[in-house]
Amino acid sequence: MEYLSGYERFLTEEKKASPNTLSSYLRDVRQYLDWLGEEGISPTQALHADVEAYTRSMTARGKSAATVTRSQASLKSFYSWMMEIGQIGENPARGLSQTKVERKLPHILTSREVELFLEQPDPSDAKGCRDKAMLELLYATGIRVSELIGLNLDNINLSAGFIRCANRGKERIIPLYQAAVRALQNYLDRVRPQMVEHPDEKALFVNMSGERMSRQGFWKIIKHYQEKAGIQKDITPHTLRHSFAAHLLENGADLHSIQEMLGHADISSTQIYTQVVSQKLKDVYNKDHPRA
Rank of each mutant, 00 (worst) to 15 (best):
E260L: 13
Q275R: 15
F205H: 03
L75R: 04
K282P: 01
Y7A: 10
I149V: 15
N207H: 02
G169N: 09
Q87Y: 10
G263K: 08
T67S: 15
K280G: 08
L26Q: 05
V68P: 04
E119A: 12
I149P: 01
T236R: 02
K63P: 00
D288N: 13
G263P: 02
L11G: 08
G37R: 06
K282Y: 08
Y3C: 11
D254E: 06
I156V: 15
N207D: 05
S74R: 04
A265F: 09
E84I: 05
G169L: 09
N152E: 11
R130S: 00
R70M: 08
D154S: 13
A60P: 01
F10T: 10
H247V: 08
H198E: 14
K76M: 06
L158A: 04
V277F: 12
A245Y: 05
D131V: 00
F10E: 12
A65L: 07
L116P: 00
E171C: 10
I88W: 07
A53D: 09
M134D: 01
Q72D: 08
V196Y: 07
T274L: 15
N186G: 03
Q98S: 15
V191C: 05
Y3V: 11
T99R: 14
S209D: 09
R9L: 13
E2V: 14
P199H: 06
W81Q: 05
R182F: 03
F10L: 11
D254I: 04
A46C: 06
L135Q: 01
G6K: 10
G142P: 03
G169F: 11
F205W: 06
R182H: 06
G217T: 00
Q279N: 14
L135Y: 00
L138P: 04
V206G: 02
Y25G: 04
Q275H: 15
R192V: 07
A140R: 06
V284W: 05
I272D: 06
T12L: 11
V191T: 15
L26S: 04
E38N: 07
